[in-house]
Design a protein around this nucleic acid. Structure first.
Lengths: 135, 135
DNA sequence: CGGAATCCGAACGGATACTG
DNA sequence: CAGTATCCGTTCGGATTCCG
């Protein structure tokens, strides 16, 4: 019976471990906000409310699918509100909640960091690549 | 010749646009640091240097592949240094650079935010899901 | 110990087309 | 205008195996 014990133990460990990971709130939430589109959307909405197509134009490179998907998840997480105005052409506004504004401060800081230190990173990259040309 | 113009124009626009995106430093770098493993590794290394296997144990859930991959990209970007000590069993230490420490402050703040506000987010999620059970 | 290489399923994400 | 639905290539990332 020793033939299956190792595999079984590993499987068992994997299951328990998986449950542990799913129960770890930080990991979950961190994974959610560590998303490219999340950063961009939240940063874009930081100054004030914006319409769907305005967001699409401002963010540049986002597909309708990703934009909607990101907005939905942010709405679900209570980071922004979605307001539908049933005019002749429908109008939908998105606005950060207090919680969202809170997060925006952090993400904007990260964005600023990226802008500020990009040249350093870029130089470091070039130096690294010069050392390992065949990577 | 109008038959191909539309497609060609779209293709052309896509190429130009792609070049624009690739030339946009912020987007690039933001995408890089908006990574789950990057946050975790940088946070883990914030207090001080750590060995490869210590990182693997501390981060919990990272595969050797992802850990190495993340460490390599961070080293390439000049956010950490890799020091090999050729002992009998090889020993490799990873340590944040000044730039890495700098980023660590921000990412740790984000991590703390996630821990602090998780319950709010979780409640919001439950409420949202209650309203749209068949999503 | 600290990786590198490979395989492979799952998920991400873009393009397109259609709806209300 | 503000999406939704589908297709489909690309990437992510875990498991496994092997090397110095």
């Amino acid at each position: 019976m020793a033939t299956t014990t190792a595999a079984q133990r590993r499987e068992q460990a994997r299951i328990e471990y998986d449950a542990f990971l799913k129960s770890c709130p930080t990991n979950q939430l961190l994974d959610r906000i560590s998303d490219k589109w999340v950063s961009l959307v939240v940063s874009a909405l930081a100054p004030g409310p914006m319409r769907y197509s305005d967001l699409g134009r401002r963010i540049a490179g986002v597909s309708p699918k990703m934009l909607t998907q990101t907005l939905r998840s942010l709405e679900r997480d209570g980071l922004l509100t979605r307001t539908v105005t049933p005019s002749v052409p429908v109008r939908v506004d998105y606005e950060l909640t207090a919680l969202g504004q809170n997060l925006a401060l952090l993400l904007t800081a990260v964005k600023d960091w990226a802008e500020t230190h990009f040249d350093e990173v870029h130089r470091s990259r070039a130096a690294y690549d010069a050392g390992n040309p065949d990577d």
